[in-house]
Simulated scan of single mutants.
Amino acid sequence: MVRINSTLAPFSTDAFRDGKFLTVTDSDVRGKWSVFFFYPADFTFVCPTELEDLADHQAEFDKLGVEIYGVSTDKHFTHKAWHDTSPAIGKIKYTMLGDPTAAISKSFDVYIEEAGMADRGTFLLDPEGKVQYIEITSGGVGRSATELLDKVRAAQYVAANPGEVCPAKWKEGSTTLKPSLDLIGKI
């Protein structure tokens, strides 16, 4: 089961990005912050709203040095066809990974065997390829890029500032906490 601090499993898959097909491996992911954004399928209903929301916030993820990988069990060819026909998906500049064998979905424990597709799962990985944030929702519940950006900023802050933690509702620039005996029972 994938948990916080689990390490990215080896993989190699075909992908679609910026009008081109390419191969992406786990080695390509290491060395930078990344988001693996699993969704059930191309040409569906909630999925394009989520993927478009990510595309609309691409510049903010870029400023944070975060690579986004949209992942479904569709092939990279299907990603291209969807990109070419949907105005919402046509906005996407990030990498869309094909996972037709479900190897990546299974390695993140989001594969629904009986449906042949992935749950809505979001995983934030640090530059070492370790999971720092997990969100999994049911098929009918979409996710928010704005909320994800808050989690990315918090995870990056904590990684850069050992000994500090981000409390609930933390936003960039807000007060953090330094855990100590003096704080116990006073928060």
Rank of each mutant, 00 (worst) to 15 (best):
A168F: 14
H57W: 04
T25N: 09
P87A: 08
D109P: 04
T85N: 09
G185F: 09
M96D: 03
D42C: 05
E114V: 14
G31Q: 09
E67K: 12
G173A: 03
F61T: 05
E67M: 10
V66C: 01
F61L: 05
V29L: 10
F123C: 09
P87C: 01
L51T: 01
S6Q: 05
L149M: 07
P162F: 02
A168N: 10
K63L: 05
Y111K: 12
W33Q: 05
F16R: 12
E135P: 02
S6N: 02
Q156C: 12
P167W: 05
T73M: 04
D26A: 08
G173K: 06
K169F: 15
T44F: 01
V158N: 01
L149P: 04
H79R: 04
H83T: 11
R120A: 03
S34G: 10
P40F: 06
T7I: 13
Y111V: 10
L97Y: 06
P10T: 09
L124H: 07
S86P: 04
I112W: 06
G140P: 06
K151S: 14
R3P: 01
A118I: 12
E52I: 03
P10I: 10
T25G: 07
V152W: 07
P167L: 09
D126H: 09
S6R: 06
S138P: 05
I184P: 00
M117I: 15
I184F: 12
K80F: 03
L149I: 15
H83I: 06
Q132I: 10
S174M: 15
T73F: 01
G142Y: 00
D150L: 15
A102Y: 13
I104H: 01
A168D: 15
L54N: 03
T137D: 05
S86G: 09
T176C: 08
I68A: 00
E164C: 03
E135R: 14
G19Y: 11
T78C: 08
D119P: 00
S107W: 12
R30V: 14
V131K: 01
D14N: 15
A15F: 07
F36L: 12
T13I: 06
K75F: 15
M1R: 08
T44Y: 00
Q156S: 08
S105M: 07
S72T: 07
Y133W: 14
T49F: 08
K186V: 10
V158W: 02
G129H: 12
A155T: 08
Q58R: 12
K130M: 08
F21T: 07
D42K: 00
P162S: 08
Y133C: 13
K178V: 11
G70A: 13
I112D: 10
I134H: 02
W170T: 02
P162Q: 09
S144Y: 10
S138G: 11
M117K: 14
V24W: 10
V46T: 04
E128I: 10
G139Q: 11
R153M: 12
D42H: 10
T78D: 14
S107P: 00
M1G: 05
Q132C: 11
P87D: 09
G129S: 08
E52Y: 03
F45N: 01
I89R: 02
Q58K: 14
H83C: 06
R153D: 07
L51C: 04
D182G: 10
E147Y: 00
L64F: 05
S105H: 02
M96G: 04
V24H: 11
Y69E: 02
A102C: 13
